[in-house]
Computed example of a mutant assay.
Amino acid sequence: MTKELSRIYPLRRSGNEPLHSNGHSLGVTLLDFWRWSSSDLISNATRGVLAEFIVASALGIKLDSVRDEWGAFDLETPEGITVEVKSAAYIQSWSQRNLSSIMFRVPKTRAWNADTNVQEKEPRRQAQVYVFALLAHQDKASIDPLNVDQWQFFVLPTEVLDARIRSQHSITLRSLERLAGQAIPYDALREAVRRAVREKTAG
């Protein structure tokens, strides 16, 4: 691989950067783009990224870097624990006849290395711990994805998912509750993730 085609490491942006024509500002900024593209926090795609951000903040991860969209796992805690975040919600942006059924996708994947552009041969779950983030609020008029009290969190060591006899591709909320127990609030999430790794090590 030539140096000119090596991996690009994104710089953290401020939002003040202008859309421009060869240096001539066109009067709109990157912040305008973010507002235009990402203000619908209930949208499935944006909600998933927001869930990662919320979990990262709960786990004490520094937020002064840039999210790695193509990473083998979503987050790494200050203690070095690798975490995968999955999100779901009862309420969607569109008109609904009923609240959505809750199911999380948990397939094994073939990790891809952005530095080498090489993908692993065998699929597996890449992180040590899974955090399932459920936007549990059920009233459209008052839903606020920025309110962490409207979220519920469930934590499972990856080995528990790997050992499941039922589907290896997805898990329902009922099955998740049987495996993980009661939901964990935002302020207890960091200790729950640590405990999941400690229990795995002790076992």
Score class of each variant (00 low, 15 high):
residue 159 E to A: 14
residue 189 L to F: 01
residue 76 E to H: 11
residue 154 F to I: 05
residue 176 L to K: 02
residue 194 R to E: 13
residue 179 L to W: 09
residue 105 R to P: 06
residue 192 A to W: 02
residue 23 G to H: 02
residue 183 A to N: 03
residue 108 K to G: 09
residue 146 L to M: 06
residue 44 N to P: 09
residue 62 K to W: 12
residue 63 L to S: 00
residue 45 A to F: 07
residue 186 Y to R: 03
residue 160 V to H: 00
residue 50 L to A: 05
residue 113 N to R: 12
residue 29 T to F: 01
residue 114 A to E: 04
residue 11 L to A: 08
residue 27 G to I: 03
residue 98 N to K: 14
residue 168 Q to K: 15
residue 159 E to I: 11
residue 61 I to F: 07
residue 179 L to H: 11
residue 50 L to Q: 01
residue 190 R to M: 09
residue 41 L to D: 00
residue 88 A to E: 04
residue 130 Y to R: 05
residue 168 Q to C: 11
residue 131 V to H: 02
residue 167 S to M: 04
residue 34 W to K: 07
residue 187 D to N: 14
residue 9 Y to K: 12
residue 115 D to A: 14
residue 166 R to C: 12
residue 34 W to F: 08
residue 98 N to L: 09
residue 105 R to N: 04
residue 190 R to E: 04
residue 22 N to H: 13
residue 50 L to S: 03
residue 73 F to N: 04
residue 80 G to H: 15
residue 66 V to M: 10
residue 171 I to Y: 01
residue 177 E to P: 07
residue 18 P to K: 06
residue 166 R to H: 11
residue 18 P to E: 09
residue 5 L to C: 14
residue 12 R to P: 10
residue 199 E to F: 15
residue 104 F to W: 03
residue 64 D to H: 08
residue 71 G to W: 03
residue 110 R to K: 11
residue 4 E to V: 10
residue 156 L to K: 02
residue 56 A to Q: 05
residue 178 R to M: 04
residue 47 R to E: 01
residue 18 P to S: 12
residue 55 V to H: 03
residue 140 K to N: 10
residue 65 S to V: 14
residue 132 F to P: 02
